[in-house]
């Protein structure tokens, strides 16, 4: 453990963190075979990072869908294209909003708890205790959470999108009186499974990996003090939000 605390405010330190985080990614990937022996731990973590985030994801999904429905119906009506509301909601969700908003929520809900948990395990010598019991904490603690992030995020995004579509439907059809058949048939004509839905799923998995990587890295390398854990938790949210948005741009630019 280094006694000097990382200060991300300095550019050099920030770069060093990025580098260390990248190396850590390789360590995590290297530990995957070993962590498969603790597959139950990964399952447990899918529960913690995934299922425990469901409520917030579902609530936010519903509201995001309703807001999108309202706004787009209003804007598209001006061009006589209110019928396209459902389509535009679906496309915006599947391609961008679903993965990005879910990733940001995921960073706040699951990422922080991963960082805080691992940071506290470091501070209370639990990671050292595992080392002493000949259990590699990288394979038992870090990698399962990383994998759980990759597995849970796409599922959460699908749930988020489904609820958002529902919310948009309620607003456009039930409240604003758009024809039900028009809402769906326009959507089904213009939304493609592969380029829209499945691409969104890949994107979500990548976001899940990035958020989980940063969360685990911050927790794993935090100075073992309560102050250190607090800083690390904040850094998880800040760094993973930036990383998600940057990666989103890169993936959108190169994959579509």
């Amino acid at each position: 453990m280094s006694a000097t605390r990382p200060r991300p405010s300095r550019i050099g330190d920030a770069l060093a963190q990025v580098g260390a985080c990248g190396l850590f990614l390789f360590q995590l990937i290297g530990a995957i075979p070993k962590s498969l022996r603790h597959i139950k731990e990964t399952i447990r973590q899918v529960w913690f990072v995934g299922a425990m985030s469901l409520v917030i994801i579902m609530t936010c999904g519903l509201f995001v869908g309703m807001v999108l429905g309202l706004q787009l119906y209003d804007v598209l009506s001006r061009f006589g294209s209110a019928a396209m509301s459902g389509t535009v909601v679906a496309l915006a969700l599947y391609r961008e909003l679903g993965p990005v908003v879910t990733a940001l929520l995921f960073a706040g809900r699951a990422g922080t708890s991963i960082t805080a948990e691992i940071g506290l395990m470091r501070a209370t010598d639990q990671l050292a205790a595992m080392e002493m019991m000949a259990v590699d904490p990288l394979a038992y603690v870090a990698t399962p959470r990383f994998l759980a992030g990759i597995v849970a995020m796409p599922l959460l995004v699908c749930v988020f999108n489904a609820l958002a579509i529902l919310g948009a439907h309620v607003v456009c059809v039930t409240w604003l009186g758009l024809d039900n058949g028009t809402f769906w048939s326009n959507m089904t004509t213009n939304v493609d499974v592969w380029t829209d839905v499945v691409n969104g799923v890949w994107k979500s998995a990548a976001f899940g990996a990035v958020v989980a990587l940063i969360a685990v890295f911050q927790g794993y390398t935090t100075p073992p003090t309560s102050e250190g854990v607090a800083y690390a938790t904040t850094r998880t949210v800040v760094f993973s939000s930036i990383a998600v948005l940057a990666l989103d741009f890169v993936m959108t630019a190169f994959l579509t």
Binding site: L54, L155, C158, W184, T188
Partner: peptide, 15 residues
């Protein structure tokens, strides 16, 4: 639940 949502999105809201 996640896969159900995916199946719903893929089969009901797309071509």
């Amino acid at each position: 639940l996640g896969f159900a949502a995916l199946a719903y999105l893929a089969t009901q809201t797309t071509s």
